[in-house]
Simulated scan of single mutants.
Amino acid sequence: MGIGIYPVTVDLIEEIPELSDVLSGRIETDALFREVIEDLKKASAFSEDASIAASERAEWTHIKSELIKELRRMVKRSQ
Rank of each mutant, 00 (worst) to 15 (best):
E28Y: 07
S20C: 09
E28R: 13
A54H: 05
T61D: 10
S20L: 05
D30A: 08
T9D: 13
D21G: 07
E70L: 10
V8K: 11
E56C: 06
E35L: 08
G25N: 03
Y6D: 09
L12C: 00
D21W: 01
S47M: 13
E38A: 14
L71G: 03
E70Q: 12
S78R: 12
K69N: 11
A31D: 11
S47K: 13
V10D: 09
V8D: 10
V75R: 01
K64E: 06
E59F: 01
T61Q: 14
E59T: 03
P7M: 12
A45D: 13
K42C: 05
I37R: 12
V10R: 13
E38T: 05
I27P: 00
P17N: 09
R77K: 14
E28C: 11
Q79F: 04
L67K: 08
R72M: 05
Y6V: 03
L19I: 04
L12M: 00
L32Q: 14
L19K: 11
E48Q: 12
L12N: 01
E14R: 13
I68N: 06
S47Q: 14
R26M: 14
S47W: 03
A58R: 07
R77N: 15
I52N: 12
S44F: 00
A45C: 07
L23H: 05
E28I: 10
I3A: 11
D21V: 02
T61N: 10
A58Q: 07
E70D: 09
P7T: 15
F46W: 04
I5D: 15
F33A: 05
E14F: 05
I37S: 07
W60Q: 10
S47E: 15
E38G: 08
I27M: 08
L23R: 06
E70S: 11
A43S: 06
M1D: 13
L40R: 04
R34V: 01
K76H: 09
K69I: 09
I5Y: 09
A53P: 13
L19S: 07
G2Y: 12
L32V: 09
E66Q: 14
Y6A: 02
E14S: 10
G2C: 15
L67C: 01
L71E: 03
R26T: 05
A50P: 14
V8W: 05
G4M: 00
V8M: 02
E18A: 10
R57V: 02
L67N: 02
I13S: 13
K42I: 04
I27C: 02
L32A: 14
I3Q: 14
W60H: 12
E59Q: 12
V10G: 00
L40A: 00
L19R: 10
E66C: 04
S78C: 05
V75P: 00
I27D: 08
E56H: 08
I27H: 04
R57K: 06
L71T: 02
R77Q: 15
K42H: 09
S47V: 04
W60M: 10
E38V: 09
